[in-house]
Nucleic acid binder design. Sequence first.
DNA 1: CAGTGGTCTAGACCACCGC
DNA 2: CGGTGGTCTAGACCACTGG
Lengths: 263, 263
Amino acid sequence: MTGALNILYVNISINSTAHSAPADQPAPGQSRYGWLAASLRARITQGEWVPGTALPAEAALAKEHGVALGTLRQALALLVAESLLERQHGRGTFVRAGLGGASMLRFFRFRQSDERTTTPNSSILKRHVELASSDVTDASELPAGASVLQLQRLRSISGQPCLLEQLTLPLPLFDALTNSDTAAWDDLLYPMYQRVCNVSIYRAEDTLSFGLLTPEQAALLQLDAGHPCAQVQRRAFDMHGHCVELRTTLGDAFAFQYTAQIR
Amino acid sequence: MTGALNILYVNISINSTAHSAPADQPAPGQSRYGWLAASLRARITQGEWVPGTALPAEAALAKEHGVALGTLRQALALLVAESLLERQHGRGTFVRAGLGGASMLRFFRFRQSDERTTTPNSSILKRHVELASSDVTDASELPAGASVLQLQRLRSISGQPCLLEQLTLPLPLFDALTNSDTAAWDDLLYPMYQRVCNVSIYRAEDTLSFGLLTPEQAALLQLDAGHPCAQVQRRAFDMHGHCVELRTTLGDAFAFQYTAQIR
DNA sequence: CAGTGGTCTAGACCACCGC
DNA sequence: CGGTGGTCTAGACCACTGG
């Protein structure tokens, strides 16, 4: 099941120490709970507990690792902080299913008379397979020569185009999307990635900038050529910390609004 | 010393429960460490420990409140999370001095041949006192009829204008700035607020959007009228959670770049 | 060296959930 | 009701800082 992924990332996995299997004992200078967290992280990313399922109870895990309850709880707190786990009082500790919808709408305010919980409709305009450009391999850490699926996607609210997206998905991880009927695709991609390709998105990095629409882009968004646009460049990562989606989203700059907290 | 502040915020303080003095016992359903944190927060915001100084040691605080060490540590962790305290292994637990420089440059990439640690020069173009508009009172929760100090400020990097700012500061809190020589002001405002007005900024909320420069704005920034600009609307808060600065910053939209983390 | 925060233990009891 | 995570205790020892 993870075979395709291993083929893709074999080089990275060898060189990476972030998620390698931990030793039997904490390294000198490493805290016991830090080592425990790494140990549990490895078991989770290796699929011992499937996303959505519950881990054994605190007491059981603590006993299994020969550690006090408080120490185990510190380890779990780390994994919760990196959004790999989710704890629910009285129910259990669950492996997170991944981001449901990390909607691009968080960056825009499009006029909607009533609700703002609506999901824009989605239509795929283009789809083709190509070799990854150097931009793509730089941003995603894909190996040179990797092939990727390129998508162009238009999102609309009640018939009005609002967001134009260019997506890059690594193959063979997303092979299942290269031939299926795009008209039947979901409006939300991340749940579909999970269902169809067994890929969960756990974290994303959105870089915001500003530009002007090309005539082609403008026509699709029903705006004038050269109209100002906000650009969101997203890198989305899976449970292993690998980049599994690159996305560039364009929208009317005057509909853009985002609030950041500074501490 | 906090008299001016009390005059300004008397209505808010009366209505607010967020930072009121806690009872002698945790309310039913409230955790002991939550209550302890509230108690310590009150003592900090009331000035019992001045920013930059150290709190008593864990053991002393725990004994004083008749609580176990672990419980006290949970309370301190809450205050660290809201950036009111800072802990340093082997040294102590300190009241934070506030944000040093929450630089607007975080949102922009201006071309600089060498370093990017440089602070732009700052010059005050306008300064006057006026009654707060409804926009201002809405955003800052100042009482209607409050008077405020309005500033216009231009920031430049090696002689090249890059950011145009409009600041609104509540009076009488910032009285010390109404007549002092603006040419002698610091390039960084927050350390100056602290030194001159005894106001520390602990948190800020920046709302990003795009617009077009008016002819006047464009002239100051040495750009064309109608040039696209990125706009950062900031609300900055002090230790008590009161908004003590409103700021609107304009800069060339093509220099705008910001990265947000999504989990 | 003495004093600080960081880690860890082995318990106890409480609050919440679902059956 | 039994099982889960959340709170709390009263210690012990370790790691870092500064004089």
